[in-house]
């Protein structure tokens, strides 16, 4: 059976107990802060905080390890690219230049400023990604739809999003079945085959996948219509949860965090924290 990535993981934890709306808003606040700030103190705090929330949520690192690794690879590429294209970015930002290693007499010299800058970039990744993963795996799709609807998104769109999330595992399963049966007819998808041929072969898996998915879509849209979906301008949600004290407290906390970190970041008129 295919590994079901990024789908909802049921646990009993305070993070799961929060309503979807709270989690969505907190996630938005979190991303805003992480995007705006380059202040190392704020980033470090956010990073440690996200590790703590992860612990509280009872989600194991193992369960999201695959996605995490995938993103780490990108992070590595990103870091290399920054160094290749802009090796003196840190110097420009912090205004000083401490050379650690002189390479080729100038442009590619390793400076403390550049290292510090790239450390900050990496830290940014590490604050946003665990939060995003956590949001995905601790939010029940139906409740998420209810939440989106509550903050003003049309319920049809909200439901479409929830359905899409729900069908990820289904499509993974179909893909696996089709791919196996096509391999049995001799279609080779392994590295032994030339890339051009592999791409062509991929088509013979994608086409049946699209056709059987279209069948499914027709069926589900009929089923939804037969049970009155789209009849009224509004709808109620079985899974909707009222705001509780814990939600209010969490939201307050996050808003305070937003204000404080923005204050710290922009206090000296610069997004960057300058230790030099």
């Amino acid at each position: 059976m295919a590994v079901e990535m990024l789908s909802y993981i049921e646990r009993k934890s305070p993070v799961h107990r929060l309503t979807g709306v709270t989690k969505l808003l907190c996630f938005l606040i979190w991303s805003t802060v992480a995007m705006l700030t380059y202040d190392t103190r704020v980033l470090l705090f956010l990073f440690l905080f996200s590790v703590a929330i992860f612990k509280v949520s009872k989600i194991k690192w193992k369960e999201v390890a695959f996605v995490l690794l995938f993103i780490l690879v990108f992070l590595l590429i990103n870091n290399l690219a920054i160094y290749v294209f802009s090796p003196q970015e840190g110097v420009k930002i912090y205004g000083t230049r401490h050379v650690l290693l002189d390479i080729g007499g100038g442009r590619y010299s390793l400076t403390l400023e550049q290292l510090f800058y790239q450390f900050n970039v990496t830290l940014k990744y590490f604050t946003v990604i665990p939060a995003a993963l956590l949001f995905l795996v601790t939010t029940n799709p139906s409740e998420f739809a209810a939440s989106l609807n509550r903050i003003g998104v049309s319920y049809k769109i909200a439901y479409a999003v929830a359905l899409a999330l729900r069908y990820i595992p289904d499509i993974q399963r179909d893909f696996r079945n089709i791919s196996l049966s096509q391999q049995a007819r001799g279609i080779d998808m392994s590295r032994k085959e030339k890339l051009s041929k592999r791409l062509k072969n991929a088509a013979s898996i994608i086409i049946p996948l699209i056709l059987s998915s279209l069948d499914k879509i027709e069926m589900i849209s009929n089923a939804m219509e037969l049970r009155g979906f789209g009849k009224n301008k509004k709808r109620t949600w079985y899974r909707a949860r009222p705001f509780q004290k814990i939600d209010i407290i969490t939201l307050m906390l996050f808003i305070i965090m937003l204000i404080v970190s923005l204050y710290i970041t922009f206090y000296d008129g610069n997004r960057f924290y300058n230790p030099f």
Binding site: S142, M224, R227, G228, F229, G230, K231, N232, K234, R235, T236, W237, Y238, R239, A240
Partner: peptide, 14 residues
């Protein structure tokens, strides 16, 4: 949730 679907569309209170 599946059983409740038609009720949700009828805006029945939770």
């Amino acid at each position: 949730e599946d059983i409740a679907f038609a009720l949700e569309n009828d805006c029945l209170p939770q």
